[in-house]
Nucleic acid binder design. Structure first.
Lengths: 351, 351
DNA sequence: CTGAAAGCGCTTACAG
DNA sequence: CTGAAAGCGCTTACAG
């Protein structure tokens, strides 16, 4: 273990050739006699040679160009505001290395804009791509172009099974729903009804939210069910007026609701309603550490938020792309991040 | 932003001197005329010069020698088994850089051994030290020696206010107790008694555990108290026989216990007891993702475990030492890691 | 007080 | 097919 690192020079002298030749062998640049090649490779293995990254980087002028393609954070949807921070953190750590990152954004609600921006990405001729595959079929098309151009890509937020992605970093959606189910079970008195709300404008997201809801419900399957009715509500127009109307209807019909599970990141909309109506003793469980969600968490209207570490997703995504490009490191393909259970008392350490 | 990085050469030509002189100025190696010095510094600032880490590292042969001083993980106490993993992860990431790490361990239960090993550390003449200051006064003595030798040190697990540490990475102990209190409040039916157990052999740890307990109790101060009695129990001999005896006494006296809070990492001992006695519907909340705790969590005997990310503590500790030594980066002094709320449904993503 | 040169380990033309 | 040399940006003796 204390042997010094082997250098090209060492391999060269042991093989009886020059370092230029060694380099040609190691980089498969051809023009080397079979016999020389074999000998050099043998010695390389014996010496357990790994290149000195410092020298390699110092020499090579060509930087790696990474491109990210993520939804734009908007007034109406601030979930995506954290993702750039993770990328910046990764870039800061990689500062000594020659890497560039170009951030491209698209409109979360527009397939057309997504397709347009995929073209922008391709024009940049990136060495690696970080992608949130919000739109399924459009993402498949884009990824097949990346594959053809031999550009590795990493998914965050979600993944598309049909593509040849380098890695996915993000939530296990089903299981995070199940965690929400467990928390709900713990804090809801027996006999009460449960209200399950899918609240999202983007229909493409439905798949995602459905999986969470399935996970949520799955928790109750094998537990002796101590609750009353499980009421499902889909709200596709998240305008406050519409949310109020929809919830009015439900609460008029059901007077025994004990807990509400909101499968998307807009639980604050439901919390607003609960506050406005002065409804007491209903437990609200939602997702994502948006400012407005956190305000309700601290005020007590929301009991639990489940966090999916958006920053860590993009941070790790950038790192994995770089490690793959610079050292050929093949990352673990599916990296599920921890499902954070966040309350008013520990939220400050998560932000 | 797209301006190329300035090099010594650029500063040299703009200042009308050689790069040797520029280097002398930047490293304060003296022997430079005041006037030259000023000019060089001015240009350096103007060009926004930062040295090329790659070239710096490539040139300098001298590696940084880090030393860690942590308790040994034992059969009886497996809490410390995770800490080395974080350090190894950091070292793997720092592989291209010239850093070494020597791990020194001591007996968690012996001040004498700790003092002995501090001497081992000093003999190694480290460039930086990572330390778990288990024994207060002995740690103060050690740290003052480090200070005298101008060796920076970072605390994990706990910190000693009286010393001049570079950084602390770990839990906010009081607040983590408060989180436990909140969870307890959420899942315990009104009117029930709460049992609070300090279970640890090492008396030095009492301060630590007391703080958690204080945090736990503080949660109930400002909430209208819906619970019955709060029973405190200190068990200093964690032998199973003794634990059984102590708990027998308590349960004989109190028949209305709704939840048990164990302030240390040995909640599995209490869980063992609960299982053996066939006690039902008591909520158990403990700390740390030890194997035996996790087994009880999955089996349902423990409801919540609170995690303090031991791996991340040492990982970040090593990184901060390296960043400080190599780039003079002053880290945030108090880095409180998130307080993880762990249940049977999300535990797998934490291990 | 200052400059010129060697060298860290690698890659990249170029000469043969 | 192979070797010798230049150079990436920095640091470190050495000469003057």
């Amino acid at each position: 273990m204390t042997t010094k690192k082997a250098r090209l020079k060492d391999i060269a002298s042991l093989s009886g050739v020059s370092i230029g030749t060694v380099d040609r062998v190691l980089h498969d640049r051809g023009e080397v006699a079979e016999k020389t090649r074999d000998k050099v490779l043998k010695i390389t293995r014996e010496l357990n040679y790994t290149p000195n990254l410092m020298a390699q980087v110092l020499k090579s002028k060509k930087p790696y160009n990474l491109v990210s393609l993520l939804p734009r954070s908007t007034e109406e949807n601030t979930f995506w505001v954290k993702h750039p921070l993770g990328m910046l953190k990764a870039m800061a750590e990689l500062d000594p290395f020659p890497v560039n990152l170009t951030q491209i954004n698209f409109d979360l609600l527009s397939e057309k804009d997504f397709v347009k921006e995929t073209k922008t990405v391709l024009k940049l001729q990136p060495d690696g791509v970080l992608l949130a595959p919000i739109f399924q079929s459009e993402s498949i098309a884009f990824c097949s172009l990346l594959l053809k151009a031999r550009i590795p890509f990493v998914f965050v937020d979600g993944y598309v099974q049909e593509t040849d992605f380098l890695a996915y970093i993000g939530e296990n959606v089903f299981q995070s729903g199940k965690v929400a189910g467990q928390l709900t079970e713990m804090i809801t008195p027996g006999g009460k009804d449960l209200l399950i709300i899918n609240l999202a404008r983007n229909l493409q997201n439905v798949h995602h939210l459905n999986n969470r809801t399935k996970g949520f419900l799955s928790f109750f399957e094998n537990n002796n069910n101590k609750f009353g009715e499980k009421i499902s509500l889909n709200i596709s127009d998240p305008g406050s007026e519409n949310v109020r109307m929809e919830l009015d209807k439900v609460f008029k019909k059901h007077s025994n609701i004990g807990s509400i599970f909101v499968s998307g990141s807009k639980s604050y909309k439901v919390a607003d309603y609960i506050n406005n109506m002065g409804i007491k003793s209903v437990n609200l469980i939602g997702y994502d550490l948006l400012e407005r969600n956190i305000a309700h968490l601290k005020a007590g209207t929301i009991r639990f938020l489940i966090g999916q570490r958006p920053e860590e997703q993009t941070y790790k995504g950038v790192k994995k792309l770089f490690d793959f490009l610079s050292s050929n490191k093949i990352p673990e393909k599916m990296e599920y991040l921890p499902i954070d259970v966040v309350t008013s008392e520990n939220v400050d350490f998560f932000i």
